[in-house]
Design a protein around this nucleic acid. Structure first.
Lengths: 176, 176
DNA sequence: TACTTTGTTTAGTAATTACTAAACGTACAG
DNA sequence: CTGTACGTTTAGTAATTACTAAACAAAGTA
């Protein structure tokens, strides 16, 4: 590969690394994805190691995270013990997968703590005067409602495949 | 304030701290917001310091971040040199404000690097064979398109105030 | 069976991030 | 003009996170 073609790839890799960090992932995740995304065929772990300059351990972890999010797929070849990975190119599918992933982890549990506070308030625990309790319930309930809205929006998106992309664009055009 | 009422507040504060970290902010940001959100009237910086147990410096920084995102508003009282802060209770307004904030900072700049890669490829720099160049342009272009879509969705949301909340719910119901 | 080739896990380290404590700047009060 | 009551900034520190190097596990091959 020519030296400046290599340079362009390197730039792209750094760009995706920064974007990765912006979205709250380690930059190695972005780097690994960049390498896979610029390859026409699936790559082995060692090849990703070579192109990113990170170690096998780090790449193993990062690529597994990508796979869990649905941003890469793991494949294998007959008569070859290596695993191969290739980038998902349908980003809308990837987004649905990422949302589904987050749904079942921290986000749900975080929201749970708010619901718990609300339950305690409604159960009348915490001896406070009635007007204070009313106020607190109203506020925490409003936050809960907001989280529920986010949650159902997120669920809606994960079900978007039932609508065609055309309808999605129709919906978006309303917002223009 | 009764001991167990205090305990409920403390739980809520910890819950919001975790949520804050989940969304990529320091947990002190969540803690400060929790205190403000559970107060019926604006609070001074020192009062937030007292209720969170963090120091003035940290709270100063965290509250300023919240204000920049539109999650709290800074107010002041006549004949009182202190600044007071109160929580925004309209979360949809807050979301718009947060998106607008992010729009102008890292996100835009991150995307810029991808566009730059694409420009270089299209300009024909990087001596590589024609089929490889075609492939790379297609992939990077697809990513660029995706980012543009996110960008315009985000812009759409920041303009949502032109529609009533009723219409928003109508749109969402299509996705059910 | 022992040897190779692969991916994963772990213990330690480097880098980053968010905090504390204290100095500083500013503006009002006397 | 000086003192006081604030908010901000800064230098250093603690805590967290993502990495490396190396041990390990698994599974095929000789």
């Amino acid at each position: 590969m020519s030296k400046d073609a290599q340079h362009i790839r390197q730039e792209f890799l750094e760009g995706l690394s920064r974007i990765s960090r912006f979205w709250g992932f380690p930059k190695g995740v972005g780097a690994a994805f960049a390498v896979l995304y610029l390859s026409p065929e699936p790559l082995s772990l060692d090849e990703i190691v070579r192109q990113t300059g990170l170690t096998k351990g780090a790449i193993s972890t990062n690529v597994r995270a990508l796979a869990r999010m649905g941003l890469v797929q793991r494949t294998s070849r007959l008569g070859d013990r290596k695993d191969y990975y290739e980038a998902e190119t349908d980003f809308y599918r990837a987004i649905r997968s990422i949302l589904a992933e987050r749904q079942n982890t921290e986000f749900a549990r975080s929201i749970e703590t708010v619901r718990h506070t609300l339950d305690e308030l409604k159960a009348g625990r915490g001896s406070m005067d009635e007007s204070e309790r009313k106020f607190l319930i109203a506020r925490v309930q409003a936050l809960q409602d907001f989280f529920d809205a986010i949650d159902s929006l997120s669920r809606a998106v994960t079900r978007l495949d039932r609508l065609g992309i055309v309808n999605v664009q129709k919906v978006l055009s309303v917002l223009k």
